[in-house]
Simulated assay, not measured.
Amino acid sequence: MAKLVATLASTHHPFYLKATTAQPGDRMPQAAEWQRKIEAYRETLTRACPDLLVMVGSDHFHQIFLDNYPQFLIGKAPLYDATFYNEQREFGLPTFLLEGAEDLSRFLHQALLDRDFDLAFSNELKIDHSIVCPIITLRPQNDLPIVPIYTNIFAPPLPSVRRFYELGRAIRAAVEAYPSDGRIAVIGTGHLSLELGGPRQFMETGPDPAFDRQAIEWLRTGDIDAILASVTHETLEASGNATHGFLNFILMLGVAGACPADYVDHLDLFHTMEAYFTWYPEGDAR
Score class of each variant (00 low, 15 high):
residue 193 S to Q: 07
residue 172 R to H: 06
residue 188 G to C: 12
residue 187 I to W: 07
residue 203 M to C: 02
residue 176 E to N: 08
residue 191 H to D: 05
residue 175 V to D: 07
residue 195 E to R: 01
residue 196 L to S: 13
residue 186 V to I: 13
residue 195 E to L: 01
residue 182 G to A: 15
residue 184 I to G: 03
residue 192 L to K: 01
residue 208 D to H: 10
residue 211 F to Q: 09
residue 186 V to T: 11
residue 174 A to P: 15
residue 190 G to Y: 02
residue 208 D to S: 14
residue 175 V to G: 06
residue 198 G to E: 10
residue 207 P to T: 02
residue 180 S to K: 15
residue 179 P to A: 12
residue 206 G to V: 02
residue 210 A to S: 08
residue 205 T to E: 01
residue 182 G to V: 06
residue 172 R to D: 03
residue 211 F to Y: 10
residue 203 M to W: 00
residue 200 R to F: 05
residue 198 G to P: 15
residue 189 T to M: 09
residue 185 A to N: 13
residue 190 G to A: 05
residue 206 G to I: 02
residue 178 Y to L: 06
residue 184 I to C: 04
residue 175 V to C: 06
residue 210 A to C: 00
residue 209 P to V: 02
residue 175 V to T: 09
residue 203 M to L: 12
residue 187 I to S: 11
residue 203 M to Q: 10
residue 191 H to A: 05
residue 205 T to P: 00
residue 191 H to R: 03
residue 205 T to D: 00
residue 205 T to W: 00
residue 189 T to A: 05
residue 208 D to A: 13
residue 180 S to D: 12
residue 202 F to A: 09
residue 182 G to M: 11
residue 175 V to L: 05
residue 183 R to S: 04
residue 185 A to H: 11
residue 206 G to S: 14
residue 188 G to F: 09
residue 172 R to V: 02
residue 173 A to H: 11
residue 174 A to F: 14
residue 180 S to W: 14
residue 182 G to K: 15
residue 173 A to S: 11
residue 186 V to P: 11
residue 189 T to Q: 09
residue 175 V to F: 05
residue 187 I to L: 14
residue 197 G to M: 15
residue 207 P to I: 01
residue 180 S to T: 14
residue 202 F to C: 07
residue 194 L to Q: 09
residue 202 F to R: 05
residue 209 P to N: 02
residue 202 F to H: 09
residue 205 T to R: 03
residue 210 A to E: 13
residue 190 G to M: 03
residue 192 L to T: 07
residue 206 G to P: 05
residue 188 G to A: 14
residue 182 G to Q: 15
residue 180 S to V: 10
residue 185 A to T: 14
residue 190 G to Q: 03
residue 187 I to A: 10
residue 203 M to F: 03
residue 200 R to H: 04
residue 182 G to D: 12
residue 201 Q to Y: 06
residue 173 A to G: 10
residue 176 E to F: 06
residue 175 V to S: 05
residue 172 R to W: 04
residue 189 T to S: 11
residue 208 D to M: 06
residue 200 R to M: 09
residue 201 Q to G: 05
residue 183 R to I: 05
residue 190 G to S: 03
residue 184 I to R: 04
residue 206 G to D: 07
residue 185 A to C: 12
residue 201 Q to K: 08
residue 176 E to M: 06
residue 207 P to E: 01
residue 173 A to V: 06
residue 191 H to I: 00
residue 179 P to S: 11
residue 210 A to N: 07
residue 200 R to D: 09
residue 184 I to V: 15
residue 176 E to G: 03
residue 177 A to T: 10
residue 203 M to E: 08
residue 188 G to Y: 12
residue 200 R to C: 04
residue 185 A to Y: 11
residue 202 F to G: 06
residue 195 E to N: 10
residue 188 G to E: 12
residue 211 F to M: 13
residue 205 T to A: 01
residue 209 P to Q: 01
residue 187 I to N: 13
